[in-house]
């Protein structure tokens, strides 16, 4: 019974982590899919969202006002970056894109360190969402984490509506499958790119802002999430928002549950000391093994189009 409760708890934590990964991955996979553009600086936008949130929440004294301002600011940052750097790189080889966005990552993360210092920051949780609710029996779960899951699901639903039910979404899908044709039909493709990019930046910033009361805000947070986001996108299939959603939940749950239950399950087949050691070593590698397994089965990811 206690085991089942622990499992439920970790499942929820994994889902919450997965939802955050999805918010970051959604923007990145759209940019990949539509513009064939690889952006290593995407994780920095997540970090920037958290820092801006910390700054605005402190300045205004309100979580909600801070969140609103942080969203607007990351959107603006996305627009400026697209205008200043990214649009010069769309027609370049992947290698140039990798290097230029790597340079941006160095510049932005060092800039964050200069502006806010290397010490981690904290954001106060809003009054409305603090506390916890009963889940099953003696088990309680924090309201804020439930709010993250709800906000992420609502965003996913909104994205699905935007992509499948609106004119902008139709152009987006058309642009992903045949860019020159859409341009030839008179659509301003560069403005479309700019909007997609800014939207992706805002989603990443949103994820960063959401997570800031739960995690401490530090300069390394962007790097960690970027790599995980890559794993998510590769598993889900480049360019597929549906794939990003499935991949994100899969990675979030496997990673969270694996870290807690890996050593416990290993104890069933080997002695406790060896199981603890092996569990510690294997758990962080689990999602990469998952990725390798998915790829050897489907080289284009779960929902990817064959190239």
């Amino acid at each position: 019974m206690r085991m089942a409760n622990l499992f439920l708890l970790q499942l929820l934590n994994g889902a919450q982590f997965g939802i955050l990964l999805f918010l970051v991955a959604a923007g990145l996979t759209l940019v990949f899919g539509i513009m064939d553009f690889i952006n290593l600086a995407h994780g920095v936008l997540y970090m920037l969202g958290a820092y801006l949130m910390a700054m605005f929440a402190l300045a205004t004294g309100s979580f909600w006002l801070g969140l609103l301002l942080a969203l607007g600011a990351t959107l603006a940052v996305g627009l400026v970056l697209e205008w200043a750097v990214f649009r010069r790189l769309y027609d370049r080889p992947h290698l140039d894109q990798v290097l230029a966005t790597f340079a941006l990552l160095l510049i932005l993360s060092e800039g964050v360190k200069i502006l806010w210092g290397s010490a981690p920051l904290n954001v106060a949780m809003p009054e409305l969402l603090s506390g916890s609710v009963p889940l099953a029996g003696p088990l309680r779960y924090p309201v804020y984490r439930i709010a993250i899951i709800a906000a992420g699901l609502a965003t996913a639903l909104g994205l699905w509506w935007l992509i499948t039910r609106t004119r902008a979404g139709m152009l987006l899908r058309a642009g992903a499958s045949n860019r020159p044709m859409v341009a030839a039909l008179g659509v301003d493709i560069s403005r479309l790119f700019m909007l997609v990019f800014a939207l992706g930046a805002m989603l990443a910033g949103f994820a960063g802002a959401l997570v800031s009361p739960v995690l401490s805000v530090d300069p390394g947070m962007g790097d960690q999430i970027l790599i995980l986001t890559f794993v998510v996108i590769v598993i889900g299939g480049v360019g597929s928002v549906k794939g990003a959603f499935a991949g994100a939940l899969l990675v979030g749950i496997v990673d969270t549950v694996g870290r807690i239950f890996g050593p416990i399950w290993l104890k069933l087949v080997m002695d406790p000391a060896a199981a603890a050691q092996a569990g510690r070593v294997l758990a962080p590698m689990l999602i990469y093994l998952l990725m390798a397994a998915v790829l050897s089965w489907r080289p284009n990811g779960l929902f990817g189009r064959p190239s």
Partner: peptide
């Protein structure tokens, strides 16, 4: 087995592993 962006991301992931 993969090309382009996939290859970049997979080698990155193996490096992180």
């Amino acid at each position: 087995r993969t090309r382009g962006i996939y290859f970049i991301m997979i080698t990155l992931a193996f490096g992180q592993m």
